[in-house]
Design a protein around this nucleic acid. Structure first.
Lengths: 375, 375
DNA sequence: TTGAAAGCGATACCAT
DNA sequence: ATGGTATCGCTTTCAA
């Protein structure tokens, strides 16, 4: 088999820039070498060969359509032989449904998102839906980034990005189509959302810290203005006050990252009057634990107990063994997919706010006792 | 605004199972509530309103088409006002091009993949291509999982999965369309691939271990039969022999995971005759370091130097400060996107094997000296 | 440069 | 249960 071995690196490239005009997806990349080649056969051809109508072929591939078993079998058999597959594009056009959902993402650095994306796309596949990914950055024009979202006529949009999109941006992006926010919501709940019950989680965490004897606790936010943070923060602080604990510090890392957690913990350790920290999510907490131990020389949990939120895989590593509030990922995913599959999020319908309970996972970062290594 | 607050969890669900027949994507989910609603206006309507032909509208949105500046401007202006967007689906049908690339993924747990997926999808967006994600599991029927890949007529397929798909499966999935394997390749190079130069990387790592005075080294594989592993392993072992070092152990974790690395390191520590370990990738190495330090009570790098491969973010955390061979992610991505955008991977054309050089990143896990914390 | 008209490949309504 | 046929919305000859 012919092949070329090619080496060397290549410059950072934006091979072809949109020629301007406006934030449209330019459909022509102007490459002459890529003109349409004939792929397989069409339904019409198959029909002719089998000696039936085009409609029959369509019916053979449509579950529940009125067609006799023999005819269906005959058609499917021949289709198999001729390697015929219905063209999904044509189907989309005539049905004005794509069976594609757009997933808007932006924070792949936080391990929680890859996890949920994976589950989500798998669950969608189960019901015959594909996932078109839209990666957005906090760059200038989200319009440009999401222009395609509208043109592709996706059946639904799932927004997984806690940060990148403002409320108005969300409305623009999801205008006129089924839309669900996952792990995020809007103050007025004007778009359907599926979230973990952050308030209960934060409250349970406060209770837990109290139960293990901590009285001087701190809260570390990720991005201060995100809905997840607001809910966790206010609920935690309220409960801390109710229990008569002291809130020693309350600071924001500026982002949901290991480094932000690391820095925040360093500050808390420097102040020296805290015996328990609730980090707004696990990746912050993990950064925080490393700072407390490796830099401040403190013991977790003896000197300071640490609690996170999400329950990412890393939290169960022996070194961290992180107490955390587990998001019910499977439930979130199931619920989201069902909302879409059942047609409960169509543009006309009133938005729904789904809140699912998580569960407090108690581990060594707050309980003392040896971390459990792998068997 | 109306809204419902809904609580409670929901059962694990396969809301609608494919009714059988064969691994087709059933296009009708049979939901009566979801019939097509009219979205925005069509090009024909716009044309009528502006008083030009349908063709003119099409041309206005096609860069490089023969149309006068005034007419284009007029049409685009009106389009803007009426919120007209060309329907990408219709465009796909008539051009028989989708501007969509399918990305086949399977190992979102390894942080290297989210990283590369993010960059890739962003780079594709830059050139006007969208990413349709296909998550495959090592489950029974990959055909079922990838049936949609063929029906959607994606312009190209990028396979990011090191493990899930066998050679034949790959050929089936990519049959008759542009295909690129990233960070993986086939023994006969029968499908175009873009990889890091694993052999050079592994050799450099052996040289590095030698240079820092290690003489009794071990190799920890991820999945033994993956191309990345084979290349790294054989090159490393060869070089180790050339340098006259002793290969104390050579074992496979069975997967590319923290836990696998952890277990492997435990074994190596138990044997007690090793002073340097090359883990096939970073996530293994990180698991390994934790086992060496927290469980075996050894010092990294004093007792055992540790080197990984990939350069994921975690490797630069102060605790790990992992020496590793950095994959040239941006180059891999650029190259992949260019191959597609330039039409160099069309079905007819001979496969290409691109190997891009990475670079050895020396950090504290092999060099001694304090890890650098965040400023 | 512009407009008219024939596809692209399914779906779905309407007869039979 | 089957077949005929008009869409779906855009692209692309082909003339003018």
């Amino acid at each position: 088999m012919l092949q070329a071995i090619v080496g060397g690196s290549c410059g950072a490239g934006r091979p072809s820039e949109n020629i301007g005009e406006r934030p449209e997806v330019i459909l022509d990349q102007g490459n002459p070498a890529r003109t349409g080649k004939r792929r397989s056969i069409t339904g019409r051809q198959l029909a002719r060969l089998v000696g039936v109508s085009q409609s029959a072929v369509s019916r053979a591939f449509t579950p529940g359509s009125s067609i006799s078993a023999e005819m269906r079998e005959l058609i499917l058999k021949t289709a198999r032989e001729l390697n015929y597959h219905p063209n999904a594009i044509a189907s989309m056009l005539s049905r004005s449904r794509t069976n594609i959902v757009g997933i808007v993402v932006s924070e792949m650095q936080n391990p929680f998102y890859p996890l949920i994306i994976e589950r989500l796309s798998r669950a969608l596949q189960q019901v015959g839906l594909q996932s078109l990914m839209f990666n957005v950055t906090r760059s200038s024009s989200f319009e440009q980034q999401l222009a395609a979202l509208r043109q592709y006529n996706v059946d639904a949009v799932i927004v997984l990005s806690a940060t990148a999109l403002s409320g108005p941006a969300l409305h623009w992006a999801t205008e006129n189509r089924a839309a669900i926010l996952v792990n995020r919501n809007l103050p007025d709940n004007s778009i359907t959302s599926v979230c973990c019950d952050n308030a209960s989680g934060a409250r349970e965490i406060a209770d837990h810290l109290y139960a293990i004897g901590r009285r001087r606790v701190a809260y570390v936010a990720g991005l201060a203005h995100t809905s997840t943070n607001l809910e966790r923060q206010s609920s935690f602080i309220t409960r801390v006050a109710e229990l008569g604990m002291t809130l020693t510090m309350q600071l924001s890392g500026g982002e949901y990252s290991y480094e932000a957690g690391y820095r925040a913990a360093r500050q808390i350790a420097a102040k020296g009057d805290t015996d328990g920290i609730f980090f707004a999510n696990d990746i912050l907490a993990i950064g925080g634990m490393d700072a407390l131990r490796d830099e401040a020389g403190l013991s977790v949990p003896d000197d300071i107990a640490v609690v996170g939120f999400d329950d990412i895989a890393m939290g169960s590593w022996p070194r961290y063994s992180l107490t955390t509030y587990r998001q019910p990922v499977d439930d979130l995913v199931d619920r989201t997919v069902r909302l879409i599959a059942d047609g409960d999020v169509e543009p006309g319908k009133p938005p729904i706010a789904v809140r699912l309970p998580g569960s407090l996972i108690k581990r060594a970062s707050s309980m003392g006792g040896a971390s459990v290594a792998f068997a």
